[in-house]
C-alpha cells in the first residue's frame, strides 16, 4: 500500500473483520477490498460509523456477472469519505443460487434506487429493501438483462436471420 490512508483503513478492517477480508489491492491509488458476503452490512456500517474511517457517502452500488467463475455474481460498493476526500471500493461475490444480499438502505438512503437497479439488471435480491421492484425496465420483463445467459438482442424479431447478418 503506497497510500497512508489506504493502509490505515485496511489495518482497521483487518483488526475487526480479519476472517472476512478475502483480498485487498490498491489500483490507481484506490483501495479495493473483497469481503465475504455475509458480513457486508456490518463492514459498511463499521466503515460509515467509525470516526477514523468515516465513509459518509455511498458513491455507487452496482452488480457484475462473471459467468465462468464459480461465484459468478457480484456487488460492488464505492464509498467516499468527504472529510478526507478518501474513497474505497468493496466487492462481494457469490453464486447465482445464493443471490440474497443484505440491503444497506438504512445506512445510505441513496442505496434505494441503486439496489433496485441492481435487482432489475442482475436479479440480485436485497434483503430488507423497502421496495425491491424493477426501476428502469418494463415491469413485465421476465429476464435480468445484464446476466450473460440472457441475449442482448430483442427476441421478438423474426426478420433477422444468420444468413443476412453473418452470425
Amino acid at each position: 500500500m503506497e497510500n497512508e490512508l489506504n493502509k490505515k483503513v485496511l489495518e482497521q478492517l483487518i483488526k475487526v473483520f480479519s476472517d472476512d477480508i478475502k483480498s485487498a489491492e490498491e489500483s490507481y491509488g484506490m483501495l479495493s477490498v473483497t469481503v465475504s458476503k455475509n458480513k457486508i452490512y456490518a463492514i459498511i456500517k463499521f466503515l460509515k460509523e467509525n470516526t477514523e474511517t468515516n465513509f459518509n457517502f455511498l458513491t455507487d452500488l452496482t452488480g457484475i456477472h462473471y459467468p465462468d467463475s464459480k461465484e459468478d455474481l457480484g456487488v460492488i460498493y464505492h464509498l467516499h469519505n468527504f472529510y478526507k476526500n478518501h474513497r474505497i471500493r468493496l466487492k462481494i461475490f457469490f453464486s447465482t443460487q445464493d443471490s440474497y444480499v443484505d440491503s444497506i438502505v438504512d445506512l445510505y438512503s441513496g442505496a434505494n434506487w441503486m439496489e433496485r437497479e441492481t435487482f432489475d439488471f442482475f436479479g440480485i435480491h436485497f434483503k430488507g429493501h423497502p421496495n425491491l421492484t424493477r426501476i428502469l425496465n418494463m415491469e413485465d420483463m421476465l429476464i435480468h438483462p445484464l446476466r450473460k445467459e440472457f441475449p442482448l438482442e430483442d427476441q421478438s424479431r423474426k426478420d433477422k436471420n444468420d444468413a443476412m447478418f453473418g452470425r
Partner: peptide
C-alpha cells in the same frame, strides 16, 4: 424498426 438499437429495452 428500432434502428441500431436491436436490444431488449427498445421497441422494434
Amino acid at each position: 424498426s428500432g434502428g441500431i438499437f436491436d436490444t431488449y429495452s427498445v421497441l422494434q
